[in-house]
Design a protein around this nucleic acid. Structure first.
Lengths: 331, 331
DNA sequence: TTGTAAGCGTTATCAC
DNA sequence: GTGATAACGCTTACAA
């Protein structure tokens, strides 16, 4: 494994100074075509390409963006990551995927992101509290931060998300018109902003319809199994007459688990005896076995926006986009 | 956004040389406790922490590992990425997630990985041909490469994977004993090694059982929709008497699509009229609505191995681990 | 247009 | 144990 060629070596071969080599690789630098050709030829011969590490050190910009994720159970993360990496790469930015967990918390990750001089940090759905930023190990001068797909709890950190209020107004409007009157809501364990926001608006809109009572279920984690378990516990104890007639779940993965339990373990007809609604519109919700009614986040717009903010083509500010209600058989 | 403090600044405050500052941050360096204390105090006051970018330039090691992914449709990628990032982070390595697609191919990505001096490159299930490495833009001196979760087609690039042959022998053995005699196999569009390997062994073991004919279906992509479509085409045209009685799919996501179509569109009882087997054992395959018989890859062992090879604690060589057959209702 | 000098913030190596 | 010199490979002045 030979070492990489450097600009100096190319310069020697091309018979110019190393700065001329740099210029040949700098778009829009003043250099004669003759020199450029000589350099490019020598570079090709030596298989030279600029060392981006050295460039980063000199320019104070790494063209790397950290993406913090703390929940890998939701399949919806995958298409978003796909789109995000693609758009970032189109702007010359690479994605550093950082797993936030017990051994590697937000403070750790932020210190690291700072030490590595990442150009930006995206909090992709992670549960992050304002007081975390108060940690004295952090200090000032962190990379610009953005919250993706949830609302921000941190002043000065813009959030790019789906319009939750609009989404839930559409959903509740639809459910109410369908005749449902005994709503339930299932959240994941993380009692943080996204869950609370959705639950809050859900309850609010029902209240506006004159329905005061919204039954709350809580799943241990964000997984189909946990959703199933929470549904099982509830359905075992609830009297059929007073049982909820429609269960909205914080996301599709919980909804699929709940729907399965209702049908398989309790032999409930969906949506006649129990309607189920999810959120995210994951691919599997759309297959015939489920036909899950859900809500699609405007992922492409959100990603366009966040990438624009990172590149500076767009002002950094909290913004929400309207999503799309996906009506299927389950409600 | 103030700039980060540097070792030199800390040195001034602490009244020592900047090299002493470095030593205070270098485990096992020779330095007196007194100096170390002075330095750490000054560092804390200035909120100093070493600049990893500069360190990388000097040490020729970035502690970053690139992971190439070209198929984000399979939910199975997510738990693997979770485990991979976690174990890498435990070794002080960050994961750069690179989306291989039409606009950013393997050659692009490898050049970039080289320019950024990544410590290693993991080809996570990507379709990568030997001739790609022959591209003259690449040249020698690339970071060490590893293939994860499929077999390698490149000499010198170790593959860390599930023992496909063993897996398919177990699967076919089971299916044969269950009495199935008309096997089918559904692959994704990518006619490359993993698919071919599984198909190859599947056909082989059936042949050893005296069953010569394995019907082949091909899905356009790796998605439930594509799996559904491929199954629909086949089931529409196949005569019930000669139709396959068991359909093995290259992965769970195709299998779920196929299973849905069989049940919903063709009203086939699963497994009585058509048995379905997948591969990967994704969470949703296990829910009651599916009960998909599948095969679990030994992800933890594979990841331990690949991380060990990257850190150098383990010899870099192709290796396979036995997985686990997951028997459920669908076959 | 081209070459020179200084600097980015570390680490490696050698004196003291 | 500590300080100094050189080097990592590039960029950004500035001078020629």
């Amino acid at each position: 494994m030979r070492k990489r060629a450097t600009a100096r070596e190319v310069a020697e071969v091309a018979g110019v100074s190393k700065w001329t080599v740099i210029r040949a690789f700098t778009p829009g630098a003043s250099i004669t075509d003759a020199s450029r050709q000589k350099v490019l030829q020598a570079a090709e011969a030596l298989n030279y390409s600029p060392n981006l590490l050295a460039r980063s050190l000199a320019t104070n910009t790494t063209h790397q963006v950290a993406v913090f994720v703390d929940d890998f159970a939701n399949p919806h993360k995958l298409p978003v990551l796909e789109m995000l990496t693609e758009r970032l790469q189109a702007e010359g930015l690479l994605t550093v995927l950082i797993n936030i967990n017990r051994n590697f918390d937000h403070v750790h990750a932020l210190i690291n992101a700072d030490q590595r001089q990442f150009d930006a940090v995206i909090l992709f759905g992670t549960a992050f509290r304002e007081e975390t930023l108060g940690d004295r190990r952090l200090g000032p001068g962190l990379p610009p931060m953005f919250v993706l797909a949830r609302d921000s709890q941190i002043p000065g950190v813009p959030a790019i998300a789906c319009d939750t209020e609009l989404a839930l107004s559409e959903i509740v409007e639809y459910l109410f018109n369908k005749g449902y009157r005994r709503p339930g809501f299932m959240m994941g364990a993380r009692t943080l902003s996204t869950a609370l926001g959705r639950r809050h608006h859900y309850a609010n809109f029902w209240r506006q319809k004159g329905v005061e009572n919204v039954v709350e279920l809580t799943a241990e984690r964000y997984s189909a199994q946990a959703g199933a378990e929470a549904a099982r516990i509830y359905l075992s104890s609830a009297a059929p007459r007073s049982r909820v007639d429609v269960l909205m779940c914080e996301n599709d993965i919980l909804a699929l688990g709940a729907l399965d339990v209702a049908r398989s373990d309790f032999a409930l007809a969906v949506p006649q005896e129990l309607a189920v609604v999810g959120f995210d519109n994951i691919e599997l919700g759309g297959v015939p076995a489920y036909g899950l009614t859900s809500y699609e986040q405007p992922t492409d717009k959100m990603i366009d926006a966040i990438v624009g903010m990172i590149t500076g083509e767009r002002a950094s500010e909290t913004i929400v986009f309207p999503g799309r209600f996906i009506r299927r058989l389950s409600a």
